[in-house]
């Protein structure tokens, strides 16, 4: 099939999935609402109405957060995989999610919760600082070593170190703080309320758009830093920019949704396999869309038990179920996959 036609069909299919999945998601939840009730709450919201509160204040932010979080984490993973020339790089592998977790846990355990917009912003700021802290360590390493493999290992080791600090903090924290932190650590898309949603959406969307500006450089980096440099790329500057951008995307999502695992690692592979390309001019929007669809799928699955048990499954219970088979498939078939050659 003509590659352009293939790309168009997959883009449209993913958009259709999101367009159909989003209203379906609005119908799911612990309180049973009919399609008509959801529709009425959306087009004619009434102040004080229970349906309006459930749909507009809870379900709409939840589904939009899931879509944006999936998009942001997937793009962060793609940037890291190309930057490090390593298909197993990702925000959680590189220790950036751990850094964000450490920053968020410090805020959560010191102040005891994430209630209200400013509570969320404080956690976000903590997560961002934590992620940037790990990034600075990685950048210091990148100035010392040229090998991206060594840098990847440095990231993994930094992640372990940061996790041990989180464990220490947990050990000394109060029961309530620990409960809040553990719940946050399981990952969820419900922490973003209607007040915070514009800020969260603006952050993820602006950072995602900036990714597009790196498509040209990322294509040159596919062949390694020596090639990219000979082609005219200032490798150090671009690598620093990519690390900061992927760190900011990871921090923004982790701050509100917790350290969501596997999406950043797995979705870029799904996008490469579906679209059969390594061209980042196509791959960046493709990964964003695949990530959005994956976030939505996780949201729908997490809501399924709520019909019976009135509770929502944590995201990190679902993402490994989707992610692990994909990674195993990729590792087994890496010789057959074009983008590995």
């Amino acid at each position: 099939m003509n590659p352009r036609r293939r790309h168009r069909i997959i883009f449209v299919s993913l958009l259709l999935f999101i367009l159909i999945g989003t209203p379906l998601c609005l119908l799911c939840g612990s309180v049973g609402l009919s399609a008509a009730q959801v529709w009425n709450a959306l087009i004619a919201p009434e102040a004080g109405s229970v349906e309006t509160f459930i749909v507009c204040d809870t379900r709409v932010p939840g589904v939009i957060t899931a879509i944006l979080a999936g998009c942001g984490l997937s793009l962060a993973g793609l940037l890291m995989q190309t930057c490090f020339n390593n298909p197993l790089a990702g925000p959680s592998i590189m220790g950036i999610s751990s850094g964000a977790s450490l920053g968020a846990s410090l805020v959560l355990m010191l102040f005891g919760g994430i209630a209200g917009m400013w509570g969320g912003v404080a956690v976000a700021a903590g997560a961002f600082l934590g992620a940037v802290g790990v990034l600075l360590v990685l950048l210091a390493f990148s100035a010392l070593v040229r090998s991206t493999d060594v840098l990847l290992i440095a990231g993994i080791l930094t992640g372990y170190l940061v996790s041990s600090v989180i464990s220490l903090l947990s050990f000394f924290s109060s029961e309530q703080s620990l409960h809040t932190f553990v719940s946050w650590g399981l990952g969820n898309f419900d922490s973003v309320d209607l007040d915070v949603l514009p800020l969260f959406a603006a952050l993820v969307l602006i950072l995602s758009i900036i990714c597009v500006l790196y498509a040209k450089s990322l294509n040159a980096m596919l062949f390694g830093s020596g090639f990219a440099s000979a082609a005219g790329l200032d490798v150090m500057r671009v690598r620093t920019g990519l690390l900061l951008l992927s760190g900011a995307l990871t921090a923004a999502v982790t701050a509100w949704c917790g350290p969501v695992a596997f999406i950043g690692l797995v979705v870029p592979h799904i996008a490469r396999m579906l679209f059969r390309t390594s061209n980042h001019h196509i791959l960046i929007p493709a990964t964003a869309l695949c990530g959005a669809a994956t976030g939505l799928l996780c949201r729908i699955i997490s809501l399924l038990p709520s019909q019976v048990y009135t509770s929502v499954l944590p995201v990190n219970v679902i993402t490994p179920v989707i992610g692990v088979p994909v990674i195993i498939y990729v590792l087994i078939n890496r010789r057959k996959l074009l983008y590995f050659n």
């Binding site: 020339n85 596919l222 062949f223 390694g224 090639f227 059969r276 390594s278 996959l337 074009l338």
Partner: peptide
């Protein structure tokens, strides 16, 4: 240069 890998799906 002599790189033999990378960009397989370009």
């Amino acid at each position: 240069a002599t790189e033999r890998n990378g960009g397989g799906a370009l």
